[in-house]
Design a protein around this nucleic acid. Structure first.
Lengths: 219, 219
DNA sequence: GCTCAAATTTAGATTAATCTAAAAATAATT
DNA sequence: AATTATTTTTAGATTAATCTAAATTTGAGC
């Protein structure tokens, strides 16, 4: 029952866009997510529906079936386990692993993933702070808030980002704002949408737009 | 300059069939190697020729250009490094890693391969005993002879196999004839094409056909 | 050197994934 | 509710990789 890369990518996109389990996702939303045309999405939705991986109604939208959800979650699991491997074992930086994991997640072998999981010590979170589903598709949610929500005086640790864009991650790296860094809020101004914080005893300015995409575990 | 999986597989096949560097490989030989039709091969040879990865003359055959050779050797390097990882780090058996490495070798990232190589300690040989090209495409040849060539009384170590078929490798595993095992020849009969040897103080019978595919480093 | 068999290439189709442009359905606005 | 705007689907093409069947070239044997 091997799926093509394209089919797998569509399933992942639908999972990502389904906030709650059986959210109905629109054709256009999927097209935007995958940077493709709405017409292509329609074609693929029909195919995935035939394979009973999604339920789909013309002009209405799509949602994952149980089987589709299982498949998509497995892909997320693979993606995040590979990211852990790339960072932890190979010493790559968290801003360069996403694209490689995007390819690695399509490698077909359940046994490989089980062994990789075992080798890595069954990690619960990936280098971006996102939870890794276990072999049964269950995962723990971590208490996390956007940096932008913190008040002056509050402290915490960087545990993830919401954006996957390489350029964004690189930007953070350059600022010294890497995973695991402890931070303390100095000011968080609602008016000019700007935030000052302390990282490694250095003062740093961030735009509200950026701060909204950085996830913090308060301490 | 990203090549498709298909293009990469053709280059690898041509490299495998080119005993010496600029051997000319026939269309049919490639078709047999890749289990595809001769017509498909012709189509692809034209394309690879356009990309200057092979030199190709209608009805005559193909051989790799420098660039094609470099690309194909890189693929072999990736394949073998991944096999080392799967066996050494993940504890998989040498008979199950080939197919997975066949997928992993197509992952695009030079940096990934360099880091993997580093992580594994720059291994010179893969679990089948085949040499791993370095980043410059050079590799050491190991002194090795087919088991079938050994004379009674000779001893050696299993360092590889010539066949990549999973079923064949599984067969050897079942017999206890795994990589690194020390063996000693008892008889090697030219008439009935049968060979008796000692592995772990156990006597074992092998057909000449099988023995010809097992590589030994004499001690 | 001719003939015939084998090897190789061409011709014409097929499948998967994609595109643009046009048509149809749904939703929003007055 | 009628009209307009947005979203989604259909229609028709395109590209990559493949196939089968027919045509062509090569070269081996007489």
């Amino acid at each position: 029952m091997g799926l093509s890369y394209a089919e797998e990518n569509y399933l992942k996109a639908i999972l990502k866009l389904s906030g709650s389990p059986d959210w109905i996702v629109s054709t256009n939303a999927i097209a935007a997510q995958l940077e493709t045309s709405a017409a292509s999405v329609t074609d693929m939705l029909k195919k995935l529906s035939d394979k009973e991986l999604i339920t789909y109604q013309r002009y209405k939208g799509a949602s994952l079936t149980h089987e589709g959800q299982r498949t998509a979650t497995t892909l997320v699991r693979k993606h995040r386990l590979w990211e852990v491997f790339l960072v932890q074992s190979l010493g790559m930086t968290w801003d360069e692993v996403h694209e490689i994991a995007e390819e690695l997640e399509h490698i077909q072998s359940d046994r490989l993933i089980d062994r990789l999981d075992n080798f890595l010590g069954h990690p619960k979170f990936d280098p971006h702070g996102d939870p890794i589903p276990n072999a049964q598709g269950k995962y723990t949610l971590r208490a996390q808030v956007p940096l932008s929500d913190l008040k002056p005086g509050q402290e915490g640790v960087v545990i993830g980002v919401k954006e996957d864009e390489t350029s964004f991650l690189k930007h953070l790296n350059d600022k010294g704002l890497t995973l695991g860094k402890s931070i303390k809020i100095l000011t968080n101004d609602d008016y000019d949408n700007t935030l000052r914080l302390l990282v490694d005893d250095l003062e740093l300015n961030l735009a509200g737009k950026v701060a909204r995409n950085i996830m913090i575990k308060p301490t």
